[in-house]
Amino acid sequence: MTPITAAELAPRVDLAVTAVEGVREVYSARPVVARAFEHVTEVEGSLAAVEEAGGVRTITVCIGVSRVDDAATVASAVAVAARGAGGDDTPSRVRVRVSRLVVPAT
């Protein structure tokens, strides 16, 4: 089986994360320079950051959760979803940042 590249894995992670119950918003976890370049060149990039260095693959995602949801539970579910996004190609590390608590509309 051919390993999945970081560029192929990132959109899969985006889809997996947005499908997790309790995730209200997803934010870019990628470096500012990469996002600025995409903005200037009008290219859409993934929100997840997938990095590979020295045989270690790291996935970082930033999410927003509702104030009524348990952020730790949602973050744990997001980590499981991100880890499974590559199928058998499991990352070495997954980081989930809860960047914002979203107030539900009343």
Results as ranks from 00 to 15, higher is better:
M1D: 01
M1H: 04
T2N: 13
T2L: 07
T2M: 14
P3T: 08
P3Y: 06
P3W: 09
I4Y: 10
A10K: 04
A10E: 05
P11Y: 00
P11S: 02
P11V: 01
R12E: 07
R12F: 13
R12K: 15
V13S: 09
V13H: 07
D14G: 11
D14R: 06
D14K: 06
L15H: 07
L15F: 04
L15C: 01
L15A: 04
V17T: 09
V17Q: 05
V17D: 05
V17E: 08
T18A: 15
T18H: 12
A19M: 07
A19Y: 06
V20I: 12
E21N: 07
V23C: 08
R24H: 12
V26S: 08
V26R: 03
S28F: 11
A29H: 03
A29W: 01
A29K: 09
P31Q: 08
V33D: 04
V33N: 03
A34D: 11
A34I: 00
A34W: 03
R35M: 13
R35V: 15
R35L: 14
V40W: 03
V40S: 02
E42T: 01
V43S: 07
V43M: 02
G45W: 05
A48G: 09
A49E: 10
A49W: 09
A49I: 01
V50M: 03
V50W: 00
V50G: 00
E51T: 03
E51M: 02
E52Y: 04
E52K: 06
A53D: 05
A53E: 10
A53L: 08
A53P: 01
A53T: 10
A53F: 08
G54I: 01
G54V: 02
G55P: 13
G55V: 12
G55I: 06
V56Q: 11
R57S: 08
R57A: 04
R57D: 07
T58F: 07
T58A: 13
I59W: 01
V61S: 08
V61P: 05
I63L: 05
G64H: 00
V65S: 00
V65T: 09
V65H: 03
V68P: 00
D69Y: 02
D69K: 05
D70H: 11
A71Q: 08
A71E: 13
A72E: 08
A72V: 10
T73L: 13
T73R: 02
T73V: 15
V74T: 14
A75E: 08
S76P: 01
V78Y: 13
V78D: 12
A79K: 07
A79Y: 06
A79W: 02
V80A: 15
V80Y: 01
A81R: 09
A82S: 11
A82F: 14
R83M: 00
G84M: 09
A85F: 10
A85N: 12
A85Q: 07
G86M: 00
G86F: 06
G86L: 00
D88L: 00
D88I: 02
D88Q: 03
T90C: 11
T90R: 14
T90H: 12
P91A: 02
P91T: 01
S92V: 05
R93V: 15
R93H: 15
V94C: 06
V96D: 13
R97H: 04
R97W: 11
R97E: 02
V98S: 15
V98E: 11
S99F: 14
S99C: 04
R100P: 03
V102I: 15
V102S: 05
P104A: 15
P104E: 15
A105V: 15
A105G: 14
T106N: 13
T106K: 10
